[in-house]
């Protein structure tokens, strides 16, 4: 299990692994939005929580199809499925590796982008916390979508269509935490709900992912 995690991380960081693509995308989005909306600090501050969350979500989406597609193409997914590791565990590790290479960097860079979008100072803490709590759910849900579409020819586009609706609750509660934080309101209700979704997704979805993966390898 640890070996699988280390391998996936190593692959991501090696040349051509695609690490940093999501980060770059997140950054570009934070630059494009003011260019499209206009430079008024009040307007940007008002929409910053939502933009940052939508940006994180799309940046996450960008790297989802790599979770299984590469392993599927070179045959190691078949080998992994016949190896003496439970597929549910392998799927969870894959999701964890995706979070470590995509979600965690997004969490860390988000305050800088908040600065670009004039996020109110009260909200920084909540931005980081909400992303830290919510992005694992994005990775786990995304892994499920990737498992569903592995081996399909037009998988990439379909993956977005399948996964984005599943991201809605996470997005709503995550952005709500930041907006409320920005307005100085209590954030515990949306934060608790966000944590609940993450916990539920982490606990249950790997079983669904492993199940559909087995079907796809049949």
């Amino acid at each position: 299990m640890i070996a699988l995690l280390m391998r996936d991380l190593r692959l991501a960081f090696r040349a051509g692994g695609g690490f940093g693509l999501g980060l770059a995308f997140f950054l570009i989005l934070a630059v494009l939005v003011p260019l499209g909306i206009g430079p008024e600090p009040q307007t940007l501050a008002r929409i910053a929580p939502g933009i940052l969350w939508v940006g994180a979500l799309l940046a996450c989406l960008l790297s989802l199809d790599r979770i299984f597609a590469l392993d599927f193409e070179d045959g190691s997914l078949d080998l992994l499925a016949t190896a003496p590791v439970p597929l549910e565990g392998a799927v969870s590790i894959k999701a964890l590796a995706h979070w470590l290479t995509t979600g965690l960097p997004l969490v860390m860079i988000s305050p800088v982008l908040g600065l670009l979008l004039f996020l109110p100072s009260e909200a920084y803490l909540w931005l980081v916390i909400s992303l830290a709590v919510g992005t694992p759910a994005l990775s786990v849900i995304g892994t499920f979508g990737a498992a569903l579409t592995v081996g399909l020819k037009r998988g990439g586009l379909l993956l977005s269509l399948l996964v984005l609706p599943l991201y809605i609750p996470t997005l709503v509660f995550g952005a709500e935490v930041v907006s409320r934080g920005a307005m100085g309101l209590a954030v515990d209700t949306p934060l608790a709900l966000l944590a609940g979704i993450t916990a539920g997704a982490v606990a249950i979805l790997p079983f669904a992912s492993a199940h559909v993966l087995r079907i796809n390898l049949r």
Binding site: R7, R14, G17, D71, D74, D78, T82
Partner: peptide, 14 residues
């Protein structure tokens, strides 16, 4: 049983 398919399951960058 150890299975080996057409593809070797090797990672090019490792």
């Amino acid at each position: 049983i150890a299975y080996a398919a057409h593809a070797d399951g090797l990672k090019a960058t490792l």
